[in-house]
Amino acid sequence: MASQILPLELIDRCIGSRIWVIMKSDREFTGTLLGFDDFVNMVLEDVTEYETTPQGRKKTQLSQTLLNGNNICMLIPGSAGPDS
């Protein structure tokens, strides 16, 4: 067997847990994963957005948010994010 578990099955197991999302750009999100679809568009709750700019890191708090899967690069399950 080449792979017993598909990548998205792993993400499916993270539903209800905290997840750290790293975008293709200098932008990251943490939040509780409520769901996602085949495009890896993700619904997150209690979200923190981290924006790295030349002026430093900017944090934004968000409630329930649909994140466009188009710009997602990496997902780290169970992580509290860049502050951990």
Partner: peptide, 24 residues
């Protein structure tokens, strides 16, 4: 409520939202 993107969108239509573009 399964929390899928579709469910989320059904829930927010008609509500106040913040749409952020990739440009910020």
């Amino acid at each position: 409520v399964s929390g899928s993107p579709t469910d989320f969108l059904k829930g927010v239509v008609g509500k106040r939202v913040i749409v952020r573009l990739t440009s910020g």
